[in-house]
């Protein structure tokens, strides 16, 4: 990739083995979808019941369309959750997701600005949690991983916190040692 430099062997991210989400993640995704879908169907049904004109116009297409959409989305959810995976390496965290656009995001721990654990009512019931990792410059969370076990979430967060703390202490020691080196380096480049 460099015209003027031969690269050494790098740790390759293609060889990462992704860990699937928690067992209940699929259940959570399906319930979440149904919680949106069923009220919608109920409203449409009510409209059809009370408004005969609308019913005459849309009843048949709704009766055929809605179950098809339901089945497709449930299948989509299964595939989507199956394809999602998360992996921790020594210095970074990788997250794979997406059915049509498959996406692999890798975020080094040293770039994590802050972490958030989010739990909705459904997630609390199922013992799940969403982990959000923020880095600088992003519009929202860089990584938003839902469907993890709450304990796993807490472990990851703790790991990241320890990592950043350790790095900071190493950095401050290093800084004191390498001051002279740094200074000459700077002047060479300035």
């Amino acid at each position: 990739m460099f015209e003027n430099h031969q690269l050494d062997v790098l740790p390759q991210h293609q060889q990462i083995v992704y860990k699937p989400l928690a067992n209940k993640a699929l259940l959570h995704a399906q319930l979440n979808w149904l919680l949106f879908y069923l009220p919608l169907t109920a409203i449409l049904g009510a409209v059809c019941f009370f408004n005969q004109e609308f019913a005459a116009l849309a009843q048949t297409s709704l009766l055929i369309g809605l179950p098809i959409i339901l089945v497709i989305s449930l299948v989509y959810n299964v595939v989507s959750i199956r394809l999602k995976g998360i992996a921790m390496r020594e210095h970074d965290i990788a997250y794979r997701k997406g059915v049509i656009w498959q996406q692999v995001t890798i975020l080094p721990f040293s770039r994590v600005q802050h972490t958030e654990i989010h739990r909705g009512p459904l997630e609390r019931k199922l013992g799940l949690a969403s982990l959000r990792l923020y880095s600088a410059g992003g519009m929202s969370a860089d990584l938003n991983i839902s469907g993890l076990n709450h304990d796993d979430c807490k472990n990851i967060r703790q790991f990241i916190q320890k990592y950043t703390e350790a790095r900071q202490t190493v950095n401050s020691i290093d800084k004191e040692n390498s001051d002279d080196v740094l200074a000459t380096d700077e002047s060479a480049n300035g």
């Binding site: 997406g98 049509i100 656009w101 498959q102 996406q103 692999v104 995001t105 890798i106 975020l107 080094p108 770039r111 880095s135 600088a136 410059g137 992003g138 860089d142 990584l143």
Partner: peptide
């Protein structure tokens, strides 16, 4: 760099 991301569709793969 803060983070990296690679995206691919079925046909791209």
């Amino acid at each position: 760099a803060q983070s990296t991301c690679a995206v691919s569709t079925y046909f791209m793969r």
